[in-house]
Deep mutational scan, measured.
Amino acid sequence: MDVFMKGLSKAKEGVVAAAEKTKQGVAEAAGKTKEGVLYVGSKTKEGVVHGVATVAEKTKEQVTNVGGAVVTGVTAVAQKTVEGAGSIAAATGFVKKDQLGKNEEGAPQEGILEDMPVDPDNEAYEMPSEEGYQDYEPEA
């Protein structure tokens, strides 16, 4: 019985440690998101679009440190934060509304985080759909 109880105690310690790591990862992701939003706020009209992409990228980098179902929630929060940063930029006159959601080359930025393969159960990952990809044929 002692062996059984000791095993359960060790398992509990492992769960607590994993929860603490997840909590730490979420806190880091939130900190990076805040950094990115402050970065966007300090940019001029020309830099705002690039700044919004930076927020998304920093958040995406930190999301990889967070495991399990938390990833889905962090990704949703990050996307809403990026959308909010863009709205703030438009409201303050840093950028025109028609410039939001495009990178410096004018290509749409939507789907940055949505296409990231995420499995809350950590069982399997699927690649994003290939609808947006084109076949590449090298020139002879």
Rank of each mutant, 00 (worst) to 15 (best):
M1A: 02
M1W: 00
M1E: 01
D2K: 03
F4L: 09
F4A: 01
M5N: 04
G7R: 04
L8G: 00
S9W: 15
S9I: 13
K10N: 05
A11Y: 13
V15P: 00
V15N: 00
V15Y: 09
V15A: 01
V16E: 05
A17E: 08
A17T: 01
A18R: 00
A19Q: 02
A19T: 03
A19D: 01
E20W: 15
E20I: 15
E20G: 04
K21T: 04
K21Q: 05
T22G: 07
T22M: 10
K23I: 03
Q24D: 06
G25D: 05
G25F: 13
G25V: 02
V26G: 01
A27C: 03
E28Q: 04
E28W: 03
E28A: 04
E28T: 10
A29F: 01
A30N: 00
A30V: 04
A30S: 02
G31H: 05
K32E: 00
K32D: 01
K32N: 04
K32M: 02
K34G: 03
K34N: 03
K34P: 00
K34W: 02
G36H: 14
V37W: 13
V37C: 08
V37S: 01
L38C: 06
L38H: 05
L38A: 13
Y39F: 11
G41H: 02
G41C: 04
G41F: 12
S42C: 15
T44G: 09
T44V: 08
T44Q: 01
T44Y: 15
G47P: 02
G47H: 15
G47L: 15
V48P: 09
V48D: 01
V48Q: 01
H50R: 09
H50M: 14
G51A: 06
V52A: 13
V55L: 10
A56P: 04
A56S: 05
E57C: 08
K58P: 01
K58M: 14
T59A: 13
T59P: 01
E61V: 09
Q62I: 08
T64D: 04
T64N: 07
N65T: 08
N65D: 03
G68E: 04
A69W: 11
V71H: 04
V71T: 00
V71D: 02
V71I: 00
T72G: 07
G73S: 05
G73V: 13
V74P: 04
V74L: 14
T75F: 06
T75R: 05
A76L: 06
V77G: 06
A78N: 04
A78V: 06
Q79F: 05
K80H: 09
T81A: 15
T81K: 05
V82Q: 10
V82I: 12
E83K: 07
G84I: 12
A85Y: 12
G86E: 13
S87T: 00
S87I: 04
I88S: 06
T92R: 01
T92C: 03
T92G: 06
G93S: 08
G93I: 11
G93T: 02
F94E: 05
F94M: 10
V95G: 02
V95C: 10
K96F: 13
K97T: 07
K97P: 09
L100E: 08
G101K: 13
K102M: 12
K102F: 00
E104M: 02
E104P: 06
E105K: 07
G106W: 13
G106D: 03
A107R: 06
A107D: 10
A107P: 07
Q109P: 13
E110M: 09
E110A: 06
L113C: 08
L113K: 14
L113H: 15
E114C: 14
M116W: 15
P117S: 06
V118C: 10
V118W: 14
V118A: 04
V118R: 04
V118I: 15
V118G: 10
D119G: 14
D119Q: 13
D119P: 11
D119K: 12
P120V: 03
D121C: 09
N122T: 02
N122V: 10
N122D: 12
N122Y: 09
E123P: 01
E123A: 05
A124Q: 09
A124C: 10
A124R: 08
Y125E: 13
M127D: 00
M127R: 07
M127I: 07
M127N: 14
P128K: 09
P128W: 02
E130T: 05
E130A: 11
E130W: 09
E130M: 05
E130Y: 10
E131H: 14
E131A: 12
G132M: 15
Y133K: 04
Y133N: 12
D135N: 10
E137Y: 02
E137D: 09
E139C: 11
E139N: 07
A140R: 08
A140K: 15
